[in-house]
């Protein structure tokens, strides 16, 4: 203990106090390779494990913060919150589930929409927050999404969506089911206005979100090893009663089957999307980021 103690900077020693084990907030363990990582370094690396490249989940807000240019954010439709149309109740009241999700995430709904710039190019970007009831699509999520699309159409700028969702939210039944057609219809207008739509698929993207807005991108990009599909693997396994093939429904599987354009490491996402948008909208090539330090 003593020789190791000497190696640590004094402020860390203070922070750990006399506690045993890995202190919260300073060290972190990779979910894939189990490497013990210095939290600050992991964050500098956009929560991608420096050892094995595993992409940790991010909150919707952090996602947009690291994607858009620093200080360019203007949140849209933030006043649109959930409505309990059906007075739905399972083992818990939907109302209580909403309250718990809001408390846990600090967000009002599972989708965050922002107008901002990417490499000085104005865009509208939105991101699902998987921690908010599994990133499920409610009427509020659909409403926020089309608000973002309509803003992009008004301002004649590209639209980007980061998806991470279990699908349509069951607690709003057909109202959330029909958000699939609502969001798809708005994207048809965006397409008719000849504005590019970038759909970026994160772990996991399934169900009604996968079967609507997420697969309608002019360009579809996935982060490495993300689970993407219509039916979740557990349900498929129960239906076909056989073991699913290795890597089934992962980004690499989708690329091989022609479902997506490319797999992009989170640390190259700004550069890649920036380059593509610049070409599709006839703008000069943007400058690649010098480093991948977190911007917020």
């Amino acid at each position: 203990m003593s020789w190791f103690k000497k190696l640590l900077p004094s402020k860390i020693e203070t922070a750990t106090g006399g506690k045993k084990g890995v202190p919260e907030g300073i060290w972190s363990k990779c979910n894939k390779c189990s490497a013990t990582l210095y939290r600050a370094e992991l964050e500098r690396n956009l929560n991608v494990c420096p050892k094995c490249g595993f992409h940790e989940r991010l909150t919707g807000r952090t996602r947009l913060a690291i994607f858009l240019d620093e200080g360019s954010h203007e949140e849209l439709a933030s006043d649109v919150g959930p409505i309990d149309y059906l007075k739905f109740r399972d083992t818990k009241k939907y109302k209580d589930r909403i309250a718990a999700a809001q408390k846990k995430t600090g967000e009002k709904e599972a989708l965050i929409v922002m107008a901002g710039t990417l490499k000085q190019m104005p865009v509208v970007a939105c991101s699902f927050d998987f921690d908010f009831i599994g990133g499920s699509m409610s009427s509020a999520v659909g409403e926020r999404f089309v608000h973002g699309v309509h803003t992009a159409i008004e301002r004649k700028i590209p639209f980007i969506c980061f998806s991470s969702s279990g699908g349509a939210r069951m607690q709003e039944s057909v109202i959330s089911l029909m958000q699939m057609s609502k969001t798809s219809a708005a994207l048809a207008r965006l397409s008719a206005a000849k504005l590019p739509y970038f759909s970026i698929l994160l772990d996991p993207t399934t169900g009604g979100v996968s079967a609507s807005l997420a697969t309608l991108g002019d360009v579809i990009i996935a982060e490495p090893e993300a689970l993407i599909g219509f039916t979740g693997p557990r349900v498929i396994e129960q239906t076909v009663r056989e073991k699913l093939p290795e890597g089934f429904q992962r980004s690499e599987f989708l690329l091989e089957h022609g479902a997506i354009d490319m797999i992009v490491d989170r640390r190259q996402m700004r550069d890649t999307v920036g380059r593509l948008i610049a070409k599709l909208t006839h703008q000069p090539q943007p400058i690649d980021d010098q480093n991948n330090e977190i911007r917020q």
Binding site: M180, S181, S184, A185, L187, A188, S191, A192, S210, A211, S212, L213, A214, T215, L216, I228, G229, F230, T231, V235, I236, T239, V240, L244, P245, F248, Q249, H257, G258, A259
Partner: peptide, 26 residues
């Protein structure tokens, strides 16, 4: 519901549904 099988996923069940929603709207 849409078929929850391996082959359906391989041929992109999600896209097939999404495309219909997109096209039918116009």
């Amino acid at each position: 519901g849409a078929y929850p099988g391996i082959d359906a996923e391989e041929r992109n069940q999600s896209e097939a549904i999404a495309r219909n929603l997109f096209e039918m709207s116009t």
